[in-house]
């Protein structure tokens, strides 16, 4: 919802993909600079700045508040990794932390009236593809290339198509799950604004007074809870898939 909608109310529902700000034509391939990319780079800059400020002038025994917070974040994430994957996967923490923070802030963008970054299937599918590549890499690393190929014929060769489908469906389902939840919340909140405007006009109010307060309650679920939950579930699934790929069979 835009600021101007606050006074006029939302009178039509218009669900579209992210705005294309500029199109580039490179060698016959059109590359679109969309809202999502701009917001994504904006978030990257903010996250980098905050992390740089938090970890500046670190001391061996922390006395400053920001260093204590930073250490708390790192140790919480390390504990989560130890719980789900085991201590041998400590090197994996930065990837999980990056995806988690990026996804959480990307979903929370909707609190500022911007289009949430994760309501773009390109973003979530890209993350899911990175996870997919890591799963395959881990499988090849644990079993060797021949063992990896043999793994598709387990338990017997007839299962090959099934195994292929289940392998390919992993990134698709992960991407769609995150996208669907955030996009669904976005559409439902726009429907609520539309309905509240309709009710306000029906009872003869020119300014949609009803849309003050009521959407905030639903926004707590659809934006805060759902955004946090989906980020958490995405990284949990990433960790579980990779930990199970590292098991020798």
């Amino acid at each position: 919802m835009k600021v101007s909608d606050f006074f006029r109310g939302v009178t039509e529902i218009d669900v579209k993909g992210p705005h294309v700000i500029k199109s580039f034509d490179i060698g016959g391939i059109t590359i679109n600079l969309t809202e999502t990319i701009v917001l994504g780079w904006f978030l990257i800059a903010i996250i980098a700045l905050v992390l740089w400020l938090m970890t500046r002038n670190m001391e061996k025994v922390p006395t400053k508040k920001r260093q204590i917070v930073a250490e708390w974040i790192v140790s919480a994430l390390n504990d989560l990794l130890d719980d789900t994957m085991g201590k041998s996967f400590r090197w994996f923490t930065p990837y999980v932390a990056t995806i988690f923070i990026f996804s959480l802030l990307g979903s929370l963008l909707s609190l500022f009236g911007l289009r949430p970054m994760t309501a773009d299937f390109n973003v979530t599918f890209c993350w899911a593809l990175m996870t997919f590549v890591m799963i395959q890499y881990t499988k090849i690393k644990t079993n060797g290339f021949l063992g990896y190929l043999k793994g598709f014929c387990a338990p017997f060769p007839v299962m090959l198509p099934m195994n292929l489908v289940s392998e390919v469906s992993t990134p698709i389902s992960m991407g769609f799950r995150h996208f669907g939840n955030v996009a669904g919340g976005m559409i439902i909140s726009s429907l609520i604004y539309f309905a509240l405007t309709g009710i306000s006009t029906a009872i003869g109010l020119s300014v949609p007074v009803l849309s003050i307060g009521i959407p905030a309650v639903l926004s707590a679920y659809f934006d805060l809870f759902s955004g946090f939950m989906q980020a958490f579930i995405f990284v949990m699934l990433t960790m579980i898939y990779i930990a199970s790929a590292a098991e020798k069979d």
């Binding site: 669900v15 579209k16 389902s173 769609f176 799950r177 996208f179 669907g180 939840n181 996009a183 669904g184 559409i187 939950m229 989906q230 958490f232 579930i233 949990m236 699934l237 579980i240």
Partner: peptide, 23 residues
Amino acid sequence: FIGCAVAESTGIYGFVVALILLF
């Protein structure tokens, strides 16, 4: 929560199909 998220994916597929049909 993880189990719920995995169980939810079929519903999400249906939702995505509905979105494509509508918008």
